[in-house]
Amino acid sequence: MPVPLYEAKAEFFRMLGHPVRIRVLELLQDGPAPVRDLLTAIEIEPSSLSQQLAILRRSGIVTATRTGSTVVYELTGGDVAELLGAARRVLSVLAAGRQDLLDELRGAEAGR
Rank of each mutant, 00 (worst) to 15 (best):
A81S: 10
R57T: 15
E74I: 05
K9A: 15
A95M: 10
R23E: 11
A54T: 11
T63A: 09
S59A: 12
L27F: 09
P4M: 05
L75W: 07
S47M: 04
L105W: 06
G111W: 06
G77T: 07
T40I: 03
A10R: 14
P19A: 02
Y6F: 13
G78Q: 12
G78M: 11
R58Y: 05
I44E: 10
E82H: 09
R88K: 12
P2I: 08
L83T: 08
L56Q: 03
I22W: 04
G60L: 01
R21I: 04
T40C: 00
R112C: 06
S59V: 03
S48A: 13
L91P: 03
Q52W: 02
L91N: 12
T40D: 05
G60Y: 00
D37K: 12
Q51K: 15
A86N: 13
E104N: 03
P46I: 02
G78F: 10
S50A: 08
R106E: 15
V35K: 15
V24T: 06
Q99G: 02
L83V: 08
G60W: 00
R14P: 01
R112I: 08
T40F: 03
T70H: 07
S47G: 02
E43S: 08
R112H: 10
V71I: 06
L27C: 07
Q29R: 11
L83S: 08
V62A: 01
S50M: 04
E43H: 06
L75E: 03
G17M: 04
A86K: 15
P34I: 02
V93K: 09
Q52Y: 01
P46E: 04
D100P: 00
A8R: 12
G68E: 04
V24H: 06
A110D: 14
A8H: 02
T40K: 10
A81Q: 12
L5I: 10
G77I: 00
Y6W: 10
V3Y: 07
P32Y: 02
S69H: 13
L75G: 03
L56F: 01
A86T: 15
E43Y: 00
T63N: 06
E74D: 10
P4F: 01
V93I: 13
V3L: 13
D30E: 15
L38Y: 00
R89V: 14
T76W: 02
S47Q: 07
A87M: 13
G77W: 03
R66I: 11
L83R: 05
V35L: 13
R66L: 10
R89N: 14
A96S: 14
A10S: 09
V20Y: 08
G78R: 12
I42Y: 04
L38V: 05
D79S: 11
R66V: 13
D30C: 01
R14Y: 11
M1W: 09
A33R: 15
V90E: 09
S48V: 12
T76I: 04
V62N: 02
G78T: 12
I22L: 09
L102F: 06
L38N: 05
L39M: 04
E104P: 01
A8W: 01
T63S: 15
R57F: 04
Q99Y: 11
E26G: 06
D79M: 12
V72F: 05
I55H: 08
